Amino acid sequence: MSGNRQIVCPGCGATNRVPTDKPAGVGKCGKCGNALFNGKPLDADAGMFSRQTGRSDIPVLVDVWAPWCGPCRMMAPSFEAAAAILEPEMRLLKLNSEVEQGVAGRLAIRGIPTMLLYLEGSEIGRISGAMNTQQIVGWARDQLSKNSAAQKAT
């Protein structure tokens, strides 16, 4: 008997139960029928950010950015390429700190671009500064590995 993962739809925000023995990459939302993953980061408003980080069983990697930020614009293609590599292992979100100032304030964002990694509703990693695709993928996987090792040690 297999278990289920909770995966939040990028379209409607509904929480879907996806069996762990089924490939999540081909899953569709039970409410709206959209694909659960498309290999691209999701532009998230405050509500979608909250649903994705709070209800999903998979890790969520968030790029906090702003349109006026040169390093953010430089990193955008790398973050998009990282989504094609990391999904469906994790969800990638882009949070515009200019539009979502309240969320950025609650997250204590002091510089951008800043990446945050969430697991089961909690932030497990944070790093600031522009990165290339390999650095993004490596950092995210390293943070998950460290968190897994810390969980096993307790």
Rank of each mutant, 00 (worst) to 15 (best):
F49P: 02
D21P: 06
A46G: 08
G33A: 11
L61W: 02
M1Q: 14
D43T: 02
P19D: 01
M74I: 10
F79M: 08
E87H: 14
N147E: 13
V64L: 11
G11K: 01
I124Q: 00
S50I: 03
R91E: 08
G125V: 03
Q134M: 11
A140H: 10
W139F: 12
V137E: 04
I124M: 01
I136G: 04
N38Q: 15
A140T: 13
T53L: 03
M90I: 14
D142K: 02
A14Y: 03
C29E: 00
P67F: 02
E89Y: 00
G3R: 11
L144G: 09
E100V: 00
A76I: 01
V99W: 05
S56D: 00
P10G: 00
T154E: 01
P23C: 13
Q52G: 01
V99H: 02
A140F: 10
L144I: 09
G129Y: 12
I85R: 03
G125T: 02
A24D: 13
L61P: 07
A153T: 06
L119G: 06
L36T: 09
I85V: 15
N132R: 06
G125P: 08
S2K: 12
C29W: 04
S128L: 04
R5L: 15
D21I: 07
L95W: 02
L36C: 05
Q6H: 06
I85Q: 08
V62S: 03
A35T: 05
Q101K: 15
Q143N: 00
D63S: 05
L42W: 00
S50D: 13
G138M: 00
T154M: 08
C12F: 10
R17G: 02
